[in-house]
Design a binder for these strands. Structure first.
Lengths: 144, 144
DNA sequence: CTAGAAAATGAAAACGATTTTCAGAAGCTA
DNA sequence: TAGCTTCTGAAAATCGTTTTCATTTTCTAG
């Protein structure tokens, strides 16, 4: 579903209000490359809309996560990042510890194995996180 | 290797000093079930050794991580946790989102698939994290 | 065994990211 | 359009973590 529509539906279902700021933040969030921290998105927005406050950006990102159009991620650098959710596909991440590059990947076989591990322990999986940390090709080459 | 020996060697190699507090913290850390946050370990220690400060517990846990007898983990509840490292085996975690239960598991096949994903992207893996979040058997049953 | 340099301790303050507060502004419903 | 509710932005509060600093402890060298 169109994320803007999805957001509007969520807002009206919850009795919330639709504001200019929220639309601006949503557009910027969707238009740009993923994995924004609150700080990064705030700084980007400020270039064009200097009146938008940090708290509003933060609250709005939380709201996006709540209504399912954003996912919260944490790659261990002490900052929470948000990425747009497209459809239902799930993906995990390769994170370059040198340059910070983030690559997304999908591997259904890993997901299957996760299910079997969970079953072994009578666990019901709700969600998971898998991150592979290391060096991207460029950084590995530069390392020589 | 014996963690206490390993710690002592690290300390003398780095020109650090061996103190009562560090030994007390190490013993308590090793003796108890894993996955302590600084706060939790501090509170536990305080029962018997009320003079030990929070900062000391924190610095000591960091030191354990540095010398390889503890691993830092983050399960998304905003607290860093430490667990004793036993030998070389690697493991991942099942985390119950209801009661907080943490189960460790190993799945070599998943590790292999991770390597192949990394290779596809010319990535060199240094480490990874895999956590499966959901309900343990008890909580799933209680949920009915 | 002891003096003295170096490191460790504990309490409190600083820190950085996130969250909350609050008064005024804006959105929505009747 | 009135009036209730939510939202906004700035600032303050919060939470976990880290640092500071005066004092104490460890340990080496004499």
């Amino acid at each position: 579903m169109d994320p803007i529509k999805q957001f509007n539906e969520y807002v009206s279902r919850k009795g919330l209000k639709n504001t200019n700021q929220r639309m601006i933040i949503l557009e910027t969030f969707l238009a740009s490359e993923s994995h924004f921290s609150t700080e990064e998105l705030y700084l980007k927005l400020r270039e064009e809309y200097p009146k938008i406050g940090y708290a509003t950006v933060h609250r709005t990102l939380k709201l996006f996560a709540e209504c399912g159009i954003a996912a919260e991620r944490n790659f261990g650098d002490g900052q929470t990042r948000f990425e747009p959710v497209h459809g239902e596909e799930h993906h995990d991440h390769l994170v370059c510890t040198s340059c910070g590059l983030i690559i997304e990947f999908e591997e259904p076989q890993i997901e299957k194995l996760q299910e079997s591990v969970a079953a072994t322990h009578q666990f019901t999986i709700e969600n998971h996180r898998l991150e592979l940390y290391g060096l991207c090709a460029a950084c590995a080459a530069a390392d020589q």
